[in-house]
Design a protein around this nucleic acid. Sequence first.
DNA 1: CGAGCCGTTGATGCAAATCAACCCCTGTGG
DNA 2: CCACAGGGGTTGATTTGCATCAACGGCTCG
Lengths: 260, 260
Amino acid sequence: MTAAPTHDDKLCPEEWHDTSGRATWTRVVQALERSKSSLRKLRPGEDILTFGTPCDAIHLLVSGWAYVFRPLEDGQQVILQFADRGTIIGFHPEPNATAQYSARTLSNSTIAVVSYDHFELLFKEAPDVAIRLAALLSRDRNLAFDSVTSFSRISARQRVARLLLQLTLHASAQGAYPKELSIPLTQEHIADATGLSTGHVNRTLGELRRNGIVEFQYRKLRILNLGDLITAAGIDGPSAKTLRDVAAQAASRPHWGVSP
Amino acid sequence: MTAAPTHDDKLCPEEWHDTSGRATWTRVVQALERSKSSLRKLRPGEDILTFGTPCDAIHLLVSGWAYVFRPLEDGQQVILQFADRGTIIGFHPEPNATAQYSARTLSNSTIAVVSYDHFELLFKEAPDVAIRLAALLSRDRNLAFDSVTSFSRISARQRVARLLLQLTLHASAQGAYPKELSIPLTQEHIADATGLSTGHVNRTLGELRRNGIVEFQYRKLRILNLGDLITAAGIDGPSAKTLRDVAAQAASRPHWGVSP
DNA sequence: CGAGCCGTTGATGCAAATCAACCCCTGTGG
DNA sequence: CCACAGGGGTTGATTTGCATCAACGGCTCG
């Protein structure tokens, strides 16, 4: 918390290093914040945007936590994405678009709203920023593909493990490596994000805890054995090595409490 | 685009009409074909790109059918997207990226390859084309979100109905309205795309057929009752009306054989 | 210190997986 | 044009993972 350099990045800071004069992620966020039309402050549980309503603005989550979801007919919801500080929500690069999803805060949050006009101007005047945003969209799409993969023929254990792994790697990519992560999610959120029932999520979390892999309770995430978590996530292909490298790198940083 | 929520289509020509001097989809495809580095011809079942290998080029499917997928550890695969003529595959707007998915042909196909350098140049010189490509990525993500929604707590019947509906609307958005659509998919592909077993896909298709809703057999898709298909897909929210409008529009076109 | 949400656990039911055997289309080569 | 081979589709018996529902227990925050 103290020593670790605070990156403004949502994503791997390394990923956005300024090579060959291209825009860094920080610059993109700054550019967006500069051209913001307004700043909204929301309490937990309030809607940032709503599925089916017109939305031709970009919403940048300046502070707080939120989640992106699709409401279902029967009152249930499917969580598509969790978002924290620095995340762009509701990027519809078309005029007069309607929101394809809803977004709701999990904690007190601040949101910068950038209107489509401003955005289009930005796109034309700063093509490097545009490329970065396209890269961001590409990454979001890949994350969505991850979700699809997780939902198909994957066991409950793997689904939950994948989600927790994702949250962990996300936090560590931001330079936060505490023993214990504070993430404002309930088991019901995990259920909505994995497509499982709360009962089964609980059982699965209990199993992972009893196996000494990971603990998630009362909005606290504790990684006990990252290697086993990766295994539990069922990632054994070519991506496993990369992942373990990232993990090793993270483990070597200060304030990271994983045992050897 | 007009407000066509969840299931709007892949390459809706109408969607890309030139309003306010912006790039049409046709122009984007032409621009890409012009700056192509090479043209590949592939037979059915060959790989266009492979998960985990370097890929900093854009692949444009000039002719034929293909599908985008993630391989699973146990030899299974999750199909993320079906693609036909005019679809852009493998759009990673970053240099030295690795492919986050594989893509494989379903029929004889031609692929135009646009290298990253050419692409970056295009991005800088024609920002309107860039915006279109960003919109494409955004739409791909939304389609992936559709898939996630379909996978969560949705019955097999609904999943299969949604996929067939998507294929139908895609074809009709392209102006093809025959009684019978030729789509080079087996039931195993449907299974991989819906996360079901082939056995259950078969039973579900049989049920839909016996209900007089839709037939899918031997690579032929026949819509018997589009209204009921929409109902079977379980889309009853605000998007249902729009969808039924699209359907009615399609039904009024020549060569469309849906009974009243 | 209490209320209420969150997490925990157990009993029961069902939707879909699995596996195996069979049948039917379709496109091939004679 | 027919025969044959093989992939794709069909069907049934059995198993299983997860949903559902209900009741209880323990955090945490006001």
